[in-house]
Amino acid sequence: MAKYFGIIIDEKRMTAIKGTSLEEKVEPIFGGALKRLVIEVSDELGQKVIDQFSKARFDARGFIEETPAAFKRLVFKKLVELKFLGPEVLEKALEEIPTIKDEIEKEDRELPVPDIDISDILELQKNPIQKPIE
């Protein structure tokens, strides 16, 4: 059974692949709320990716998930370089994992907090409906 590696395509990444054959392979998900590219790989290559990272795993859809964000950035970089949506992209990225080792380690300790206003939920939480019981 094939396995899959998905790469989320935001505006910045879309710009990077504009005009290439990759652009037409971008698929909408969740009704277009997100866009992604999908690389299909063999079981063996999928397992090779999983084995590199302690948290990584196949999810129920057969996707390789919970790889570090630094690895996803590396895969996208290789994708842009090779302009091709095939397993070779992941193979190249695997070869270059040593170059992102520090980034991966840092990711396990810190991830930047999104800069969004959460005051509305803090307000809602001031009057919880469920109260501690004695």
């Binding site: 998905g6 129920a60 996707f63 790889t67 996803k72 930047p112």
Partner: peptide, 16 residues
Amino acid sequence: SRYSGSFIRGLLNEGV
């Protein structure tokens, strides 16, 4: 689109 908890955690990891 199918849900996947791992996929969603991956989004947060990437700052999406």
